[in-house]
């Protein structure tokens, strides 16, 4: 990865200032921009694992959406008996309940990711066509199993008391949950950057993305590394799914398919396999979604396709292409 390439970073402020005259009202613009940051963080949490898995092992998991949905459902199930903590007027209790639910979601989806890797993906390494088909099949089965266990109707997913509503600074209203989402997203991003850039494990992962064969030749078992990354990626999808469901405050079995389109756009824009690109791509996509969602809601998703097309015309391999591809 080229470290000194800061040009794509300018896209975020560029897009923001381009939107300002179109939106007109500065307070609305600030609210929208902060909403975009929060949404971008959630999408980043969901997509980071997917892009790393692809970079490391050339596996693209179309079933990633299932982990998003299952994580959200697990969190909802955990939150049910903790209704007392959620309704208590205490930030500590609220956060404890949420934290516990997120941990359960992550543990559940991580475990599921491990099983998914064993059963579904292991037999089809190196065969793209079969990978796409098999993981899509896995997605169908997982979505149907959600219907079996939790039923198909829409479930409410209420925010805890202390996180409801908004903080107003001057004229600008910022929803509290969005601040939490930004915080979690930043923690995940910095933790990931630290692990990838400052630990031996991260060094091996980065080396594996660049040239897996060489890492194997040096005596490291890249398969174990890959399973670990896959499990971590699935757990992050579960975490992201929980956040997304709380953000929407409702939950349906289709939540995974709904987000996965944005996730794909993000990892294409960022450059398949690149975590930094994924972070930037997530913010850009969320900005686009929020600005156009306000200006012309009917074309919100189409505008993101346009964004993808423009970026790919500029850099056909994504913002931060990974060296070997």
């Amino acid at each position: 990865m080229v470290r000194s390439d800061y040009l794509p970073l300018l896209l975020v402020p560029a897009l923001a200032f381009l939107a300002l005259p179109l939106i007109g009202n500065p307070t609305t613009w600030v609210t929208l921009t902060i909403a975009a940051l929060a949404m971008g963080m959630m999408i980043f949490v969901i997509s980071s694992g997917l892009t790393l898995v692809f970079g490391l092992m050339d596996v693209l998991n179309f079933g990633h959406g299932a982990f998003i949905a299952i994580g959200a459902y697990l969190a909802m199930t955990t939150l049910l008996p903790m209704a007392g903590w959620m309704q208590a007027d205490s930030l500590t209790l609220n956060l404890a309940a949420l934290g516990l639910a997120m941990l359960v979601a992550m543990a559940g989806t991580g475990l599921l990711g491990w099983a998914f890797e064993r059963v579904i993906i292991m037999p089809v390494y190196g065969q793209h066509l079969k990978q796409i088909l098999i993981t899509t099949g896995g997605l169908i089965v997982a979505e149907q199993l959600i219907h079996v266990f939790w039923g198909g109707d829409q479930k409410p997913m209420a925010l805890p008391t202390a996180l409801r509503g908004a903080i107003t600074i001057g004229d600008v209203a910022i929803e509290k949950f969005r601040l939490l989402a930004v915080a979690i997203g930043l923690v995940v991003f910095f933790a990931m950057s630290l692990i990838l850039n400052r630990t031996k494990l991260g060094l091996l992962i980065r080396a594996g993305v660049e040239n897996g064969e060489m890492v194997e030749a040096l005596g490291y078992r890249i398969r174990r590394l890959f399973v670990a990354v896959f499990v971590a990626g699935s757990a992050l999808a579960g975490l992201g799914g929980t956040m997304w469901a709380l953000y929407r405050e409702t939950l349906t079995a289709g939540i995974g398919s709904e987000v996965i389109v944005l996730v794909f756009i993000v990892i294409i824009i960022g450059g398949l396999g690149s975590v930094g690109g994924c972070f930037l791509g997530a913010i850009l996509v969320a900005q686009m979604a929020n600005y156009t969602g306000y200006l012309a809601p009917k074309v919100a998703l189409a505008s993101n396709i346009l964004l993808m097309v423009i970026i790919l015309m500029w850099r056909p391999q994504g913002l931060y292409p990974v060296a070997k591809r």
Partner: peptide, 24 residues
């Protein structure tokens, strides 16, 4: 031009956008 997997993702995104547009 790029790869099979890329095409799968792009078509998924374009088709979803089209479906939403048709509904809107």
């Amino acid at each position: 031009r790029v790869r099979a997997i890329f095409y799968a993702m792009v078509t998924l995104a374009v088709a979803s956008a089209f479906a939403i547009l048709a509904g809107q």
